[in-house]
Amino acid sequence: MFNRILLSVAVAIVTTVTAFAQPKLEVIGGDTYDWGKVKPPKEGYLEATIQMKNTGDKAVRITEVRPGCGCTKTDPDKYDLKPGEVSTMKVKLNISPTQSGSLTKSITLSWADLAGNDALKAFRSSGTAVPSGADTNIRTGYLYLKADVQREISFMPSTYFSFNDLKIGVEATSKIEFVNNSDSDVTLSDWKTEGGLVVNHTGRVVVKAKGKLDIVGKIVPSAKGNYSGGVKFKTTHPDNAEVDLRAYGFVQEPSSPVFQNGSVKP
């Protein structure tokens, strides 16, 4: 279970505050939700229920819940909380098809004193003076989402061949590493390429348990513009029965300065 850890507080709007007590918002269970070691979810994401509690002695308002890249959230069921009240929301941690290993994302939480926030809104909308001593500060904390995604088969650095600075008639090479993290040998077979891509394997190849295999792709471009190709093959691993590795690049004009004796024309 998670330790109860008070969200770290940062002042976002600086005003004069004379109130003795500060509004407090705490994530029940702590500011980090960790799924631990998990297999890649079929849904493409991990989901959890998060509860936020007003642990102070003043009413608070949740002013913003902003997810970072790679995670989503639903709106809290309550934004205004009396002391002791709890707001609940769902969060999702998106797992890409190639994601493997440790992953950490964050959600920004902002809150304010309810009365002070109402006074600030009234000032901004109608010019009503903010009462002396009103706490109009916005406080900010962070909720961290963590997971360690365990894939038995992974591809490094990605699931596609990346070709840079392609030139017509000049061979280019790119490599993908097939990683077998499982406890059993995996056999690769039935290789089929497209787009003029040539790979260094054509028959049955056995990748030992905990072993790796370099898949090297080569092309000789014959026309300018965007290039796309790829290779498909089968494996004996149930999670990756068929694999499709794409290949991308851009072939520049033969007259481009990069082809002129290796230097750029003035």
Rank of each mutant, 00 (worst) to 15 (best):
K92R: 10
Q260F: 11
I50M: 03
K175G: 07
K234Y: 13
R124C: 06
S228W: 07
F20E: 13
L143S: 04
K192A: 10
D34S: 09
V264W: 15
A129H: 06
R246F: 13
Y33R: 15
T55V: 10
S256T: 04
S154P: 01
F178G: 12
H201F: 07
G169L: 04
S162I: 13
K210N: 10
Y227E: 06
L197N: 05
S125G: 00
N261F: 15
Y248R: 07
R61H: 04
G196F: 09
D57E: 13
N54T: 04
A115T: 07
E64T: 10
T88G: 02
V251F: 09
E64A: 15
K192D: 11
S174I: 08
P41R: 10
V65T: 06
D183P: 02
G225Q: 15
V14K: 02
V216G: 01
S100A: 15
V14L: 02
S162E: 09
D214Y: 11
G230T: 03
Q252E: 11
T49C: 05
R246W: 15
A223F: 13
K212C: 00
P67N: 08
T72G: 11
M52V: 02
N180I: 10
T136S: 12
F163W: 07
T16L: 08
S126H: 12
N180P: 11
G116T: 07
K212I: 12
G30E: 01
L166H: 02
G203P: 03
L145E: 03
K146D: 05
T63F: 05
V186L: 05
R124A: 15
G101V: 08
A223I: 06
F20N: 10
G196Y: 14
Q252S: 08
T104V: 05
A129R: 14
V216R: 00
Y79P: 05
E152Q: 13
T108K: 09
